[in-house]
């Protein structure tokens, strides 16, 4: 039996449903309605409306990614330190919320953040000033952090948990204090996980149109919202594809970093 033949279904599948569709995006993005070659759809990113949406998305995605990283790294370290033999259990804790629908979870933040919502109820009860962030960029960032935090925690955790505890002990033994140990040993050794986490958070945050719609009250348009509307409302697929190509430049940049730092693709394994 030739094992290589077994790969045929998958090769066929990935060609038809991964590569061909991507080519189609490029085809549409580089042509106009008549099918003639044009760069107009890509250059359209320069219009004030589009560049503002892209800039806004980049800004919010960057902030969310940084917050995710700052929250996730200590968390991953703590989870490793619990020396739980149930790796799967820790993973499950972060995957479990996914069984409650993504949209509903995001909607729930609406209820929590509203002027008369739960959080302000508690704050009012404690005589603290109320929190008015619903329909602002801050609420969108919160939604992004909430939805994508697991994608930062898991890759970092996966890397940290594989580091031999004695490597940390050895650094301490050789005179490094806890902070030096972190800076010189843990951090460099966990870089692949960090890069992988950054990719896994930054890309969906940059391209979301749902979170901005639900928590931004429709007032804040991100590049994702514009592309979505070109496809579902305006039906200008060429423009939508052109803007997607621009978006993909950022994604490809991210992919390259991730590919360089994680050659075996093992870090992403959940």
């Amino acid at each position: 039996m030739n094992r290589k033949l077994l790969s045929a279904p998958y090769l066929f599948w990935s060609a038809l449903f991964i590569l061909v569709p991507l080519c189609m995006v490029f085809y549409y993005g580089l042509t106009d309605k008549t099918g003639a070659f044009t760069l107009e759809n890509i250059l359209a990113i320069a219009t004030p409306e589009h560049s503002k949406a892209l800039w806004e998305a980049l800004k919010l995605a960057f902030v969310s990614t940084v917050i995710c990283l700052l929250l996730a790294y200590p968390l991953a370290m703590i989870l490793c330190g619990m020396n739980s033999h149930k790796d799967s259990f820790i993973v499950l804790i972060f995957i479990l919320p996914m069984w409650m629908n993504f949209l509903l979870r995001t909607m729930a933040w609406q209820s929590l953040l509203e002027k008369t919502g739960v959080i302000n109820g508690i704050l009012g009860f404690l005589h603290l000033p109320s929190l008015n962030i619903i329909n602002t960029p801050a609420a969108i960032v919160l939604g992004m952090v909430y939805n994508f935090l697991p994608f930062m925690v898991l890759p970092i955790y996966n890397v940290l948990v594989k580091i031999d505890k004695n490597i940390v002990n050895a650094a301490r033994d050789l005179g490094a204090n806890p902070f030096q140990t972190f800076l010189k040993i843990l951090l460099p050794l966990s870089l692949p996980g960090i890069f992988s986490g950054i990719t896994m958070v930054f890309v969906p945050a940059l391209t979301t149109f749902v979170i901005s719609r639900v928590l931004g009250g429709g007032k804040i348009l991100l590049i994702g919202n514009i592309i979505e509307e070109e496809f579902t409302k305006t039906d200008n697929w060429n423009l939508g594809s052109g803007l997607s190509i621009v978006l993909m430049l950022f994604i490809i940049f991210n992919m390259v970093i991730s590919a360089v730092t994680d050659k075996d693709g093992e870090v992403n394994a959940l």
Binding site: F17, I18, T207, I227, F231, G265
Partner: peptide, 23 residues
């Protein structure tokens, strides 16, 4: 092959969505 496999994971859902829609 693994590089191609990773595309749908690393690529934005919105791009995967519209590319399949166009296909």
């Amino acid at each position: 092959i693994m590089g191609v496999t990773n595309i749908p994971m690393l690529n934005a859902d919105i791009v995967t969505g519209i590319s399949l829609m166009l296909l």
